Amino acid sequence: MTGNGTLRWFKSSYSDGGGNCVEVAYEAFHGYVGALRIRDSKNPTGPHLTVSPGAWGAFLKGTRTP
């Protein structure tokens, strides 16, 4: 989180540029990432997922091409 309590969202480097984008924000606690938030960039005020850093790492590992 930033100093004012808002999250800094950024788009996935794998987004297609045509509006099908995933955005991710890191929520830090005492200098450590405590949670990751994931949302659809077309609906920034809509629902988002909150996952632990370990769960996010496992997801990314599972999506990599062997």
Rank of each mutant, 00 (worst) to 15 (best):
M1E: 06
M1R: 14
M1G: 12
G3H: 07
G3V: 09
G5I: 05
G5S: 10
T6G: 09
L7W: 02
R8C: 14
R8L: 10
R8K: 10
W9L: 02
W9K: 04
F10H: 15
F10D: 10
K11Q: 15
K11H: 06
K11P: 08
S13G: 15
S13I: 04
Y14E: 14
Y14L: 12
Y14I: 02
Y14C: 01
S15A: 11
D16A: 10
D16C: 01
G17H: 08
G17C: 06
G18C: 15
G18A: 15
G19M: 01
V22I: 11
V22A: 00
E23C: 02
V24P: 07
V24Q: 00
Y26W: 03
Y26H: 14
Y26P: 13
Y26I: 00
E27I: 02
E27K: 10
E27G: 12
F29Y: 10
F29L: 06
H30T: 09
Y32M: 13
V33H: 02
G34Q: 08
A35L: 07
L36W: 09
I38L: 15
R39F: 04
D40H: 01
T45R: 11
P47K: 08
H48P: 01
H48W: 05
H48D: 07
L49S: 00
T50M: 13
T50Q: 09
V51R: 00
V51L: 09
V51S: 00
S52K: 11
S52V: 03
P53Y: 07
P53N: 04
G54H: 13
G54Q: 09
G54M: 10
G54D: 15
A55G: 11
A55F: 02
A55I: 04
A55R: 09
W56I: 01
G57D: 15
G57P: 02
A58F: 00
F59Y: 11
F59W: 12
F59T: 07
F59C: 03
K61H: 14
K61D: 10
T63L: 14
P66L: 09
P66R: 14
